[in-house]
């Protein structure tokens, strides 16, 4: 057990039953509830990480409010979407992103104010 969605039936906020939705992440289906963010869907499904930093280190949600950019995903072809800020839409095709170099090119600096 791990992160999860509070069940609607037990929610003090008096939620009506969830409206289900389904998204895919790298082709794998994930079920969620309408209203959840993409990060919320993934966390509630027990997935804590979905992006890789430059060294390949796993990243998921950190700040949860759009400041840290750790949780970036590609949504329906749009790169660099903050998963914690984007509401999941039924049918969203999410692909994960990695900063790790595929090539032997060493991580470099890009200088200037670049």
């Amino acid at each position: 057990m791990s992160p999860r969605l509070v069940p609607a039936s037990a929610d003090a906020a008096g939620r009506r039953p969830d409206v289900p939705l389904r998204i895919t992440v790298d082709g794998v289906p994930y079920n969620g509830a309408a209203g959840q963010t993409i990060a919320g869907v993934l966390l509630a499904a027990g997935r804590r990480s979905w992006r890789n930093g430059p060294s390949g280190a796993p990243r998921g949600v950190f700040c949860g409010i759009g400041a840290c950019f750790d949780c970036l995903v590609t949504v329906n072809g749009d790169r660099d979407v903050r998963a914690c800020r984007r509401r999941a839409a039924d049918g969203d095709a999410v692909t994960t992103q990695s900063r790790a170099a595929d090539s032997a090119d060493p991580a470099g600096t890009d200088g200037g104010e670049r």
Partner: peptide, 8 residues
């Protein structure tokens, strides 16, 4: 592009 992956 730069070695850090950004594009100028």
């Amino acid at each position: 592009s730069t070695r850090a992956g950004t594009i100028l």
